[in-house]
Amino acid sequence: MTEAQPPAPRHVKCPSCGRPSLYAPENRFRPFCSERCKLHDLGAWANESFRLASPEDPGLDAGSAS
């Protein structure tokens, strides 16, 4: 019986800069490639640059316009 070899390291695209990033426990910034990219993304969330879309509900304004 042969021993199973560990899978090859997986690389993903860094969500911030697009460079390859090691997606493994050795990369403490994963899925980002560096601390700089991680902090850049965190800053964008803090500045509300990223927003989640919400459905518009036309009934909300209709009740208050009396």
Rank of each mutant, 00 (worst) to 15 (best):
S66R: 14
P20Q: 04
G43S: 14
W45G: 03
R19D: 14
A24Q: 03
A8E: 15
A4F: 04
S66E: 14
C37W: 02
C33H: 03
C37L: 02
D41H: 13
R10A: 02
A8G: 07
D61S: 11
R10V: 05
A46W: 13
S16K: 06
S49R: 14
N27R: 14
E3W: 00
C37I: 01
C14I: 01
Q5M: 12
M1S: 12
R36G: 01
R51P: 00
A44H: 04
P25C: 00
L60A: 08
S49M: 08
G63W: 12
P31C: 10
E48F: 09
A53H: 07
R19I: 09
D57R: 09
A62Q: 14
K13F: 02
P7V: 04
A24D: 12
P15N: 10
P7R: 06
P25H: 05
L60W: 07
N47T: 15
G59I: 04
C14R: 02
R19K: 15
D57K: 10
R30A: 15
C33F: 01
G18S: 06
D41S: 12
C33R: 00
S21Q: 00
C37A: 05
A24H: 10
D57N: 10
L22W: 00
P9M: 11
S66L: 07
G43C: 07
V12S: 09
P6A: 14
S49C: 09
C14F: 05
P9D: 11
G59R: 12
C14N: 05
H40D: 11
P31D: 08
L52H: 03
N47P: 11
P25Y: 00
C14M: 07
L60R: 11
P58W: 13
P31T: 02
L60G: 01
A8H: 10
A4Y: 02
C33I: 00
A46E: 15
Y23L: 14
V12M: 10
L52S: 09
S49Y: 08
N47S: 15
L39G: 07
V12P: 00
C33E: 00
S64C: 14
D41G: 04
H40K: 08
K38Y: 14
